Simulated scan of single mutants.
Amino acid sequence: MTRSRADTSRSDADLVRINRGFYESLWSAARLIGPERFNTWPLSRELAEAAPRRLEVAPGLRPRLPLAGTCFVDLSHAALRRLRAGGGNAIHGMIGQLPCADASFDLVCALDILEHVADDDGALAELARVAAPGASVLLSVPLHPQAWTAFDEFVGHYRRYEPAEILARLAAHGFVLEQSAVYGMQPGSSRLLALGQWYLTHQRERAMWWYNRVFMPIGLRFQKPLQWHAGLGDTAGVDEVLLRCTYRPATAPSH
């Protein structure tokens, strides 16, 4: 039976605990990979060059914005140490309560984050709070609740989004979608996912070695180039989508 989302009785505190446990272990055994190694780099570099004040939320050790000159906020102390060593300004915090001033960034990046929190409206409100009017906002989310697998729950996901749902939530917080790119396809092998989950559960150290030394380098080598499309394109069969928005807050009513 396919589940549309994880157990909705889980609180943000439960999700923080699950995510901290999984990702602290992951980042403790991982190496920092610079943003230029990812297929997001041609897109994010262009945005970063036009934005002197930049924030990336929860990048772990896979930042997509330039290390120098970017503020990073993450829960993982292992990730924070390595980000700082790489030249980043890294601060401990979480998306629901960002340790940043209002309207302080021209570019805000939060990839693979919204699906991890129970209160995604609160998270979007925080991103809107720290974004300056006219700021670019780069997000990514998994799509299609019917594509839910046990692996979603294992890695701390709370939901997958219907395309219309994520657009409505973004618009409610002042984020205007400008462009999107196909960021992933639905995995073709449920057996492979189950095998990976088993190893991560029962032989985590060995699984982390294979992930960091073998699968991650192979994945980087075979990344497909990303291409922007106006608005939200055809999402049939798309596992994850990358979104570029502009923050346009509602005009305050005149008195």
Results as ranks from 00 to 15, higher is better:
Met1Lys: 01
Met1Ile: 01
Thr2Asp: 00
Arg5Gln: 12
Arg5Asn: 05
Arg10Ser: 01
Asp12Pro: 14
Asp14His: 15
Phe22Gln: 03
Trp27Glu: 07
Ser28His: 07
Leu32Asn: 08
Pro35Thr: 06
Pro35Gly: 08
Pro35Ile: 04
Phe38Val: 00
Thr40Ser: 13
Trp41Thr: 10
Ala48Gly: 06
Ala51Leu: 02
Pro52Trp: 02
Arg53Gln: 02
Arg54Pro: 05
Leu61His: 04
Arg62Ala: 14
Leu65Val: 01
Pro66Leu: 02
Pro66Gly: 03
Ala78Gln: 05
Leu80Met: 05
Gly86Lys: 09
Ile91Gly: 07
Ile91His: 10
Gln97Trp: 09
Leu98Pro: 10
His116Tyr: 00
Asp119Ile: 07
Ala123Tyr: 06
Ala123Phe: 06
Leu124Ile: 12
Ala128Asn: 12
Ala131Arg: 06
Ala132Gly: 08
Gly134His: 05
Leu138Trp: 02
His144Ile: 11
His144Phe: 13
Asp152Ser: 04
Asp152His: 11
Tyr158Ile: 01
Ala164Gly: 00
Ile166Met: 08
Leu167Asp: 05
Ala171Arg: 12
Leu177Gln: 03
Ala181Asn: 00
Pro187His: 12
Leu193His: 01
Leu200Ala: 03
Thr201Ile: 08
His202Val: 03
Asn212Phe: 03
Asn212Asp: 13
Arg213Phe: 00
Leu220Pro: 02
Phe222Ile: 10
Gln227Trp: 00
Gly237His: 10
Arg248Phe: 08
Ala252Thr: 14
